[in-house]
Structures are given as C-alpha cells and as structure tokens.
C-alpha cells in the first residue's frame, strides 16, 4: 500500500483519538523494551518516539491489534539495534560520542527492579550489555518483558527451539561473566 501523506491524514481524520489510545496502550511496553536493550533513559525515550512516529505513518495499514504489538516489538528492537551499532562505532564524524561503549561499566538502575535487588541487578545489566545481540534481545523480551518463548520466537522470526537455544546460551554467558566478576571482587578484598 502506498504510504502517502494523504492516506495517512485521511486515516487519522477518520479515526480520531485512536492513535492516542494506541500510544497510551503500548508506550510502557515500547519504553521498557528499549530501556532493557539500551540501559539509558534518554536513548529509550528517543527510540520510543521514533517507533510511535513510524506507527503514526503506518496506522492505516494495520488489521487487528495483535499485529500491532508484534510490529511494535520488532521496530523497537530494530531501532535499538541501530543505536547499539552507533555506540559500538564509538565515534561519529564530528567527534567522540559521550555514551558508554559495550565494554564500559554502567551504573544503570532499572526503575522496575525491587529495591533489595538493585545492586545485583546493576551487575547483571553490566553482564547483559556484553552479550551478543540476539542473546540480549531474547533475554530482554523473555525476562524483562515477561514474554513466553513462543512470543519471543514470533517477534524475532525464529523457531521456538532457536529461541530456547539463545536463552540457554545467554544464561550460560551471564553466569560465567558474573562468576568471574564476583571472584575478582573477592580477590581484591
């Protein structure tokens, strides 16, 4: 379907308030996913803005709300991938970026983590940012968004067994990194 400005305006004029309802329904889902992937509030807000602007421009093409949530997850993950790629490059043509690269220690605290778990969660997030991209995506969707493996598989366009394998490897890598980290902490005391 052609994505012309006329089509978009016509749809929004014919369906007043629907876009605002969609934003209210899915903004926490998109923001939380982006926050889990990027571990930075400002970047997560920017990604959420981009995702909903894309939704605004594609509103007239959707048939059913189930398709929208899957689509939103996919676009969010893609946008986060772009941001992570930019961070990995580290520098832009006009100078050095201030964001941390994948190897830096981050002091991110997720607002949804229970107070008694915050210290351990910060260590886990540092381990998480060192995971390969697909493993990180599967972990965030499954653990932080609470999606079932089948739902994660649909979003990532993979088989259920493929996602199970990703989650298993993610857990293995995280445990190994955490073990090394805590051993180093004990040895330095």
């Amino acid at each position: 379907m052609a994505n012309t400005d006329d089509d978009i305006s016509r749809w929004h004029n014919a369906n007043p308030g629907v876009f605002e309802l969609w934003v209210n329904t899915w903004q926490d889902m998109v923001y939380n996913t982006a926050l889990g992937m990027l571990m930075n509030e400002t970047d997560a807000e920017d990604v959420a803005q981009d995702v909903f602007v894309a939704l605004y421009r594609n509103s007239h093409t959707f048939r059913g709300e189930a398709a929208i949530s899957t689509w939103l997850y996919r676009v969010t993950i893609n946008r986060c991938t772009d941001v992570l790629r930019q961070r990995k490059r580290g520098k832009t043509w006009w100078g050095k970026r201030e964001e941390p690269s994948a190897g830096d220690w981050i002091t991110f605290e997720h607002p949804g983590v229970l107070a008694e778990n915050k210290d351990h969660a910060t260590v886990l997030f540092n381990a998480l940012q060192r995971l390969p991209h697909h493993q990180r995506t599967a972990f965030v969707l499954n653990k932080m968004e609470g999606l079932r493996v089948a739902e994660v598989a649909e979003i990532m366009k993979r088989s259920v067994s493929g996602v199970e394998s990703l989650l298993s490897r993610a857990n293995q890598h995280l445990r190994q990194w955490l073990k090394n980290y805590y051993e180093a902490q004990v040895n330095t005391k």
Partner: peptide
C-alpha cells in the same frame, strides 16, 4: 544477580 530481574515491574 541472575534472579534480580525476576518479578520486576515494567518501567
């Protein structure tokens, strides 16, 4: 650390 995100709320 592995269990620290269990039961977390959505941001």
């Amino acid at each position: 650390a592995m269990n620290s995100v269990d039961g977390m709320q959505r941001a």
